[in-house]
Amino acid sequence: MANLLVIAIGAILINNFVLSRFLGLCPFVGVSKKTETAIGMGMAVIFVMTLASAVTWVIWTYFLSPGTSNIFWIIANALGSDTPAAAFDLRYLETIAFILVIASLVQFVELVLQKTSPALYEALGIFLPLITTNCAILGVAELNTMSLGYSFLEALVHGIAAGLGFTLALLMMSGIREKLEFAPVPKLMKGLPIAFIISGLMSMAFLGFSGLKF
């Protein structure tokens, strides 16, 4: 339990996906002009990230990793093949498998929401197609499986927390940018450059969390 808390705090504050891991910057810069759209985007990202963490973990563990839990080995074994379990190593396919799974997942979520919950679809709808190319989603999948080797529950918590961290950064940014509309920003710095400078300052503030120890 304490372990899960550490993962959650780590993903939200210490290794914030946007400000310290540099994942999901396109939506961070693109849809942070208004707080309202920032909330919509944040919710959509939390939702898809949680689902994607769960699904890609299952794909990684039961389809791509070698060993006796590999589905292909179980089928081959049941059919009487005596190929060793270690031979079923499909991990090199992980990039292709993950991006396809995430793209289909987003399409599927969009269809389900459209049919079952028109209100939620109204709120998240326009953000969902953008999410496929959000590198934070593929990033969390790669981190969960390849780099950090999390268990299912840990991967799930990491997915939710990463989404929360993204939303936190996005909301703070949109709040600042709304106020910035009234500030006399030099012409050359308007828009993108000043957004980066602000992110830099926010990132500096978040650097303070790296002293958090449990």
Binding site: P193, F196, L207
Partner: peptide, 22 residues
């Protein structure tokens, strides 16, 4: 050290975009 930490990346890119506009 700050320049190779995350904040340095944001600050440098911000300045670089402004420079390219100039």
């Amino acid at each position: 050290l700050l320049m190779i930490l995350p904040p340095g990346a944001f600050l440098s890119l911000g300045l670089m975009v402004a420079g390219s506009r100039w």
